[in-house]
Write a protein that binds this DNA or RNA. Structure first.
Length: 553
RNA sequence: UGGGUCGUCGCCAAGUGGUAAGGCACCGGGUUUUGAUCUCGGCAUUCGUAGGUUCGAACCCUACCGACCCAACCA
């Protein structure tokens, strides 16, 4: 949600000014992904910006697939992108658009340019074209095919279209300036031969327009007023404008650039993310450790938290790196107020309450949330044998340790205060059981002798509980900038990014919970059932994020 | 000896000639049956550096330094 009190970002200011000055009547934006991969957190920023602006200024935002390269694109991606945009909570206006919807029009515009003497078919191959283009510091040279006649160009382009040439044999170029300091203006290629089947147009075409020759035109056709993209397209803007000025387009959109989102300890490059998937470093594009929208969704992030994170992170032209801590803060903030509480013991250790009758059973009642009555309450069976976490017991400890210690007391959350008497060990010396006593009449009140416990620990009944598997995630990379300066990010993978704990014991109420609902396992963190592996007979929980821990080990 | 863009607290980010918002992180106090939450307080005499203009500059000018982008028939 857009925070109404925050100042407008620079793009919003431009939109507001254009609206106030009547430069535009209504704002029209678009989110233009290429369907060649899954959406990640960086795309989420673009989505929030484009849809967000339309929303706050009463305009519209289209979803348009920029599908000018059939070799890299696939319908699978089209579907996942649609699902991700919707999940994030945005609705595009009208039908979904495809740049390929405009191929006929774009083709006509290519013809228009040829007739105007502004475009020509060039027979230079890739390598030759590169040589003629010059370098970033040296001017290029005109192609020897630059002065072909309009008739010849028309005929040649038609042969390209008809499939008479092999891929790479020639291309259609626009005649601008081979000496321009801007490389994109050195007679850019606007149509190339690709004998590939397109996911939308099938085999209708064997020539496809380039990004530069399609994007702005698509914007113009859709009446996009503000074409928002990332900084690397800045140098394309003169070309973008050139086409808008030299073609009889129906409207005149303007391109604005903002800096893309970078998050430390994270990579956001489709190619690199794909490598993690292909090499099975992760469990697919939606692995809970992936910065993809689908991965974050499976991890347990809420759409609200992602939108909030992006809002707090701002929009500017500064190339910065946002601390993952901000993302973690956003999801903790959301889940703290919205997730129901529950108890789950991750590393069970048996506690026998020696002064509690073997045949006695009680049912404790605990609130679903400390401050939200609407989240109801839950019943917690309690008996002589309980389970607590191994980390919550020590035979002896210093005063800083606020959990169970022999001879000391601790509060069992939502139940009695207990005092430990002895630790039972196996032959190897491992503690396998703690023998303790309850202090009578301490439910909801302090001990009568006024010796108050220092801490509170969570627990679960030793038999009346639900078994589950818990997956603890940590950052995928140990390096804050895994791929900076051409570093090999595969070398900084965190070997401990996933820890699978089996035999965890959760409180009884979990068995009946909705697979989609998120919980705070008290004193541990926030969890959600894993959409891939969890089943009613075998619950699997993903840890979304741990609780903030100032005690820090 | 090309062009473009950017440099405000550890991180993100307002401010655009009138004397440095906010968030994250961090550090303290209080509350607390989650070492959580909540709450109170602290946290840039300084805006990449050096000059200049001005009564007054982070904002204007000049030079310098640093970072990023551009030589796919990718987007």
């Amino acid at each position: 949600m857009t925070n109404s009190t925050r100042p407008l970002n620079f793009v919003e200011k431009i939109v507001k000014e254009d609206l106030d000055s009547n430069k535009v009547q209504a704002v029209q934006t678009r989110f233009p992904p290429e369907p060649n991969g899954y959406l990640h957190i960086g795309h989420a920023k673009s989505i929030c910006l484009n849809f967000g602006i339309a929303e706050t200024f009463g305009g519209q935002c289209n979803l348009r697939f920029d599908d000018t390269n059939p070799e890299k694109e696939d319908i699978e991606y089209v579907d996942s992108i649609k699902a991700d945009v919707e999940w994030l909570g945005f609705k595009w206006d009208g039908n979904i658009k495809f740049t390929s919807d405009y191929f006929d029009q774009i083709h006509e515009w290519a013809l228009h340019l040829i007739k105007e003497g502004k475009a020509y078919v060039c027979d230079l191959d890739k390598e030759q074209a590169r040589e003629y283009r010059g370098t970033v510091k040296e001017a290029g040279t005109n192609s020897p095919f630059r002065e072909r006649s309009v008739e010849e160009n028309l005929a040649l382009f038609e042969k390209m279209r008809a499939g008479d040439f092999d891929e790479g044999a020639c291309s259609l170029r626009v005649k601008i300036d081979m000496a321009s300091p801007n490389m994109h203006l050195r007679d850019p290629i606007i149509y190339r031969i690709k004998k590939a089947t397109h996911h939308q147009t099938g085999d209708k075409w064997c020539i496809y327009p380039s990004y530069d020759f399609a994007h702005g035109q698509g914007d113009a056709i859709e009446g996009v007023t503000h074409s928002i993209c990332t900084l690397e397209f800045e140098e394309h803007r003169p070309l973008y404008n050139w086409f808008i000025e030299n073609l009889p387009v129906p409207s005149t959109p303007t391109q604005y650039e903002f800096s893309r989102l970078n998050v430390n300890y994270t990579i956001t490059s489709k190619r690199k993310l794909k490598q993690l998937v292909d090499e099975n470093v992760v469990d697919g594009w939606n692995d809970p450790r992936m910065p993809t929208v689908s991965g974050m969704r499976r991890r347990g992030y809420t759409p609200e938290s992602i939108r909030e994170f992006i809002d707090k992170t701002g929009v500017s032209r500064n190339e910065g790196v946002v601390d993952v801590g901000m993302l973690e803060f956003a999801i903790r903030e959301d889940l703290n107020t919205n997730a129901a509480r529950a108890m789950c013991v991750l590393h069970p250790l048996k506690v026998t309450l020696t002064n509690y009758p073997d045949d006695k059973k009680e049912v404790m009642t605990a609130p679903g949330h400390p401050s939200r009555d609407d989240l109801g309450s839950r019943d917690l069976p309690f008996s002589r044998e309980l389970l607590i976490d191994q980390d919550d017991f020590r035979e002896e400890a210093n005063k800083k340790y606020k959990r169970l210690v022999i001879g000391k007391r601790v509060r069992l959350r939502n139940a009695y205060v207990i005092e430990a008497d002895e630790a039972v060990k196996d032959e190897a010396g491992n503690i396998i059981e703690v023998r303790a006593r309850i202090i009578e009449d301490t439910i909801g009140k302090n001990p009568a002798d006024d010796i108050k416990p220092k801490g509170v620990i969570h627990w679960v009944d030793a038999t009346d509980n639900v078994d589950c598997e818990v997956r603890l995630y940590d950052r995928l990379f140990n390096d804050a900038s895994p791929d900076a300066g051409g570093k090999d990010y595969m070398l900084s993978l965190n070997p401990d990014s996933l820890a699978i704990l089996s035999g965890c014991k959760g409180e009884k109420s979990l068995a009946a919970s909705d697979p989609e609902s998120r919980f705070q396992f008290e004193r541990e963190g926030y969890f959600i059932q894993d959409s891939r592996y969890s089943a009613p007979e075998k619950l699997v929980y993903n840890r979304v994020i741990s609780l903030r821990d100032t005690w820090a080990k």
